[in-house]
Amino acid sequence: MNYWLVKSEPFKYSWQKFNEDKRTFWDGVRNYQARNNLREMKEGDLVLFYHSNEGKEVVGIAKVMKEAYQDPTTDDKNWVVVDLSPVEALKTPVTLEQIKADERLKDISLVRQGRLSVMPLKAEEFDRIVELGS
């Protein structure tokens, strides 16, 4: 299994809306590295859902339900989406400040490549963030 983190601005697509929808395709990715990460996602992989700009915190866990396919919001064949479903909310959101302050998370992509919207996580990074949120 692989682990990931996706970012969404809550005013555009929030954790609450994601839970209401129960499933969504993750669109709007227009960065090649983030797109390549979407292409690497496999059904069953776990994904941390991060509210960017407002809040700046990991709020929940999602699961990849369908692997990469053509982004239906564009005719450009360069862009793909994956389907995600919510699994559970973290009991306590984990802030970017907490992540930056945690020695075990010092090399996480969220800190090193702050603008990247879809990023891989090591299993131990995923587990540590979930632990901080429980």
Rank of each mutant, 00 (worst) to 15 (best):
V81Y: 11
M41L: 09
N19I: 09
Y32T: 12
D71E: 14
R104H: 03
E57G: 01
H51V: 04
S134V: 01
Q16G: 11
A123P: 05
F11H: 13
D27W: 12
Y32A: 13
F25A: 13
M65I: 14
V87S: 14
L116E: 05
A68P: 02
G28M: 14
K63N: 10
M65Y: 08
N19K: 14
R104E: 03
S8Y: 02
V94C: 04
A62G: 11
K63T: 13
T95K: 02
D75M: 09
K56I: 08
Y32L: 13
R23Q: 15
D71P: 05
L110E: 00
P10C: 06
F18H: 06
D107G: 09
E88F: 11
T92R: 02
R35E: 09
Q98M: 08
G55Y: 01
E125N: 03
Y69V: 12
R30A: 13
L46F: 10
K22Y: 08
R112L: 08
V29E: 11
R39C: 11
Y3E: 05
E88S: 15
I99D: 00
L105P: 01
S109P: 08
T74M: 09
T73W: 07
M41N: 07
R35I: 07
K100E: 07
G44H: 10
K100S: 09
R39F: 05
P93I: 03
L84E: 05
A62S: 10
K66F: 10
E97G: 12
Q70C: 07
W15C: 04
A123H: 02
T74G: 08
V58L: 06
L5A: 02
R104W: 00
Y50V: 00
Y13V: 08
W15Q: 07
A123W: 00
V64G: 03
K91P: 08
K12H: 12
L38C: 12
V111N: 09
G114L: 01
N78L: 11
N37I: 06
D75Y: 07
P10S: 02
L96H: 06
F126E: 04
Y50R: 03
F49H: 03
E43Y: 10
L121S: 00
N78Y: 11
R30P: 05
L121Q: 00
E67F: 06
T95N: 05
E54Q: 10
L105F: 01
L116I: 09
K7V: 06
Y32K: 15
Y13K: 04
E97I: 09
N78W: 09
E125P: 02
L132F: 00
V80E: 13
E97T: 11
T74A: 09
L5F: 00
L96F: 10
F126N: 00
Q33Y: 14
L48Y: 01
E67W: 06
F49M: 07
N19M: 14
